[in-house]
Nucleic acid binder design. Structure first.
Lengths: 211, 211
DNA sequence: CACGTACCAATTCGACCGTATCGGAACCGT
DNA sequence: ACGGTTCCGATACGGTCGAATTGGTACGTG
């Protein structure tokens, strides 16, 4: 056998380069040449790892998705002793990428999300990730709801979707500059607090329908 | 005076073309040639209206932003007699672009939002729009809070930010395909309903704090 | 009726894109 | 030592990009 190369690790290296460029210039600024230069490999090497540019992008999206959700998972298993409510708070803060250190990942996520709206391959990868996170959130909310008297457990899945969408919306608003990270953090935790802290009130005095 | 042309209306025409293309292929697929072809004008005409491509994009973003927020505003003044809560529901549904008819606008918004994360000029335009909508939402929540016994009025601005971020997050998730429009609509209205329907808890101290 | 001017379509330009190809270097079993 | 196989960097190609230039046309003015 001739000289062998670790394809897997090289693909990861290239994926990192893609993410760096997507962070700095948006996904439009990701070209094969720049990726190769950033990854310190030749263009030919990039093309040998990925047949087309799209294949490279899909892999890069999977790469960063896995990294983010892995961090969320780590956060969850690290605090199993704590209440599910606390765990959810940590996980939500993690997924919203509010920390300055993860601002780059947030920009990459937004760039990919926008592209996924018009690219089926990217959308598939992204959807799979969201489905997993939503399921985890749903389970957490379910567990947390059992311990309290609040009837939040009415629909844990819906609450999970709410938290997930809120987190992503906040991420977007921080990236745009409409909110500061602190403000976003405040909004997120206020929402989460509202889930458990309000005690149950068996009788609704009056219904105010909004629709 | 030589042959005159209505610059303003032509710029709007071109902006429409930009939005159409951004909807179909994402913002990367927006080129001067395609824009010109879609707007039924020559490339030169586009270049006379906008000195650079970025100037064209900024104008297009302002164009669609104004259109969306104008629709929200129209929705608000159309139902002044109804409760502020109802009005907020309508406005939030409008801003989240969940209706199938506005799916294209949603894709355009997402494309611009992603680009705004790395483009200062776009971010400025987008921020101005968000500031206006957030202010309107804050006022609505304030008014709605006065009529109820619920102490939601603790921080109308924060609630406005929550609704706005939630709406955007839901829009994104629908575009990606993680949620159906119906599910997103459900989440949004459940959240809004939660703002007013939960009765106050008299025994609680006035401060609701949760890390 | 000329004339200048504002407008427009077409062309050109240099740069860069993604992709394909190729000669040589590196490596291994024999 | 050597031939075969795999990897690598460089280069060429067809195409498209944004931007600038040019020649022609329609129009209001003098």
């Amino acid at each position: 056998m001739p000289r062998q190369v670790d394809h897997a690790s090289r693909r990861r290296l290239i994926a990192e380069a893609v993410c760096h460029l997507a962070d700095e210039r948006g996904l439009e600024g990701v070209t094969l040449r720049d990726v190769a230069a950033r990854a310190q490999v030749s263009v030919g090497a990039v093309q040998r790892c990925f047949r087309t540019k799209e294949e490279m992008l899909v892999f890069a999206l999977g790469h960063i998705s896995e990294r983010i959700s892995e961090r969320v998972r780590a956060r969850l298993v690290r605090s199993p002793a704590q209440s599910a409510a606390t765990a959810l708070g940590h996980a939500a803060a993690e997924i919203s990428l509010l920390r300055e250190a993860h601002r780059a990942e947030a920009r990459v996520w937004l760039a990919f999300a926008a592209q996924a709206a018009v690219s089926k391959a990217l959308a598939k990868t992204l959807k799979a990730n969201y489905a997993a996170v939503q399921e985890a959130f749903t389970r957490l909310i379910s567990e947390a709801g059992e311990g309290t008297d609040r009837a939040v457990s009415l629909d844990p899945q819906r609450e999970a979707r709410t938290v997930l969408a809120l987190a992503d919306g906040l991420t977007t608003h921080v990236l745009i500059g409409h909110l500061t990270p602190r403000e976003a953090h405040d909004v997120l935790h206020a929402h989460l607090a509202g889930l458990w802290e309000q005690p149950a009130q068996p009788s609704h005095s009056r219904e105010d329908r909004a629709g």
